[in-house]
Every structure is written in structure tokens, then in C-alpha cells.
Nucleic acid binder design. Structure first.
Length: 208
DNA sequence: AGGATAGCTTCATTACATCA
DNA sequence: CTGATGTAATGAAGCTATCC
């Protein structure tokens, strides 16, 4: 049914917007509306005790059969509703209400599960990001050490033979193969980032 | 085509029962 | 007795199908 599909989509969007405020707006800005305030329900004037009405808790047996039916299918067609109602000695309206409330409980449980699943995924992604950032820091240190060593060697060679043709040896000539030596092709840009960009990113460690 | 209506849903809330 | 919690029940609003 088309309505069902749309409802399911809406539910998913609602779920997203509930846990990630702003996401819904980004995805479907044209559909965002200011929620109309629902009219508050009036208090029932007829006193429950005086009218003889008593809210009845359903028996374990009734709940068990309702649960069984809910497990088979969350939707309730009229025929099934009437059959269940007759079977349990309940008003069909009560069966419908039970299914409504059960669907609401199921949905809220599902949202909680979905949330904790997403949270777990998010946490492990942040952890992975931090590991990679640490790795980048280590590699930067290694690179810095290598450059220092290279400069030392250059200074030494300059002192030994200032007239030698090797005196034209420069860092420009060395830097390109250096990345290859460390297996870092494609990472060149990384090393032009600001120093503190890693420091800030590294703070994610503490948020986990 | 389009308004009226019935019958369904979800959502928010209230009202009641039960328990610590 | 009282406050917290769970759940049956209610009302509003939205959607779809059907009728006229």
C-alpha cells in the first residue's frame, strides 16, 4: 500500500531527526513545517468510579494471545480484530487499542535499539580516526628525523669537499624520493597541514 | 473532477492500577 | 499515603478509498 510505504519513510525520517537534529532539515527542507500544537484533551467529566467504569487490566492469558498475534503481524485487519476479540471475550475496540499501544511500544524499543547501534558504530569510527591520526603523527616524527639526518649528512659532505660537484645536491632533489622510501605516495598534502590540526583532532580520544 | 464520509493510522496525552 | 511506572483508553489530526 502506498500509504504504508510513505509512513515507513516518515518514521525513518522522524527517527533521524529525533536523534540527529538538523539532519531532517538538510535532507528534506521543503517538507519541514512548524508542528501544529495538538489541542489538549479535555478532562473526562464522568467520574470513573461513580459511572461504574473500571479500567481492566488484561489477563495474562489475553495478553499472551495478543502478543502471539502481534508477533505474527503488527497490522490488524477488521476480520482478524473481530476474531481475536471474540476469542478473548473483549471488545474489538479494546483489541485495536491494544495493538495501537503495542505498536507504539515496539517502535520506541526499535528506536532505542537503532540508537545504540548507531552510537556503537559512531564510537568505533571515532576510535579508528584517532588511531589513524596517531599513526600520522608518528610518521611525521619519522619524516622530521629523516630530514634532520639528511641535513647532517649534507653539512658533513659540504665540509669535506666544498668544490665537489656533489655540492649542488639539494633537498628538492631528495624530498620526492623520500616519500616513496616511506611508502607514502599520495600523502604529501597531509604534511602541509597545520601542526595543531592534529592536536585538535586528537582530542576525540577523550570523548570516547 | 471534487466534496463528503467512513475507517483506518499515528501521536500525544490522560486516567487508572499497581507496586515499592 | 505517595510518587513512579506501566498500560488501557481517549482525542486530534492525517491519509486513503469509496460514494455520489
Amino acid at each position: 500500500m502506498r500509504a504504508q510505504t510513505q509512513t515507513q519513510v516518515d518514521d525513518q525520517m522522524a527517527l533521524l531527526s529525533q536523534y540527529y537534529p538538523g539532519i531532517y532539515d538538510q535532507l528534506m527542507p521543503e517538507q519541514v513545517e512548524v508542528a501544529k500544537p495538538r489541542r489538549r484533551r479535555k478532562k473526562n467529566k464522568t467520574d470513573a468510579s461513580s459511572s461504574g467504569f473500571r479500567k481492566r487490566k488484561l489477563s495474562d492469558e489475553q495478553v499472551s494471545l495478543l502478543e502471539q498475534n502481534f508477533g505474527d503481524e503488527h497490522k490488524l485487519e477488521s476480520e482478524r480484530k473481530d476474531r481475536i476479540a471474540a476469542e478473548l471475550g473483549l471488545d474489538p475496540r479494546q483489541v485495536a487499542v491494544w495493538f495501537q499501544n503495542r505498536r507504539a511500544r515496539w517502535k520506541s524499543k526499535k528506536l532505542e535499539e537503532e540508537y545504540s547501534k548507531l552510537k556503537t558504530e559512531h564510537d568505533s569510527t571515532v576510535l579508528e580516526k584517532c588511531k589513524l591520526e596517531t599513526e600520522v603523527l608518528k610518521l611525521k616524527e619519522q619524516l622530521s628525523e629523516a630530514e634532520k639526518e639528511m641535513n647532517r649528512l649534507l653539512e658533513r659532505s659540504d665540509g669535506i669537499s666544498s668544490t665537489s660537484p656533489s655540492s649542488s645536491f639539494s633537498m628538492e632533489a631528495i624530498e620526492a624520493p623520500l616519500f616513496g622510501e616511506f611508502g607514502m605516495e599520495g600523502f604529501e598534502d597531509v604534511f602541509y597541514l597545520q601542526e595543531n590540526s592534529y592536536i585538535n583532532g586528537g582530542l576525540d580520544w577523550f570523548n570516547i
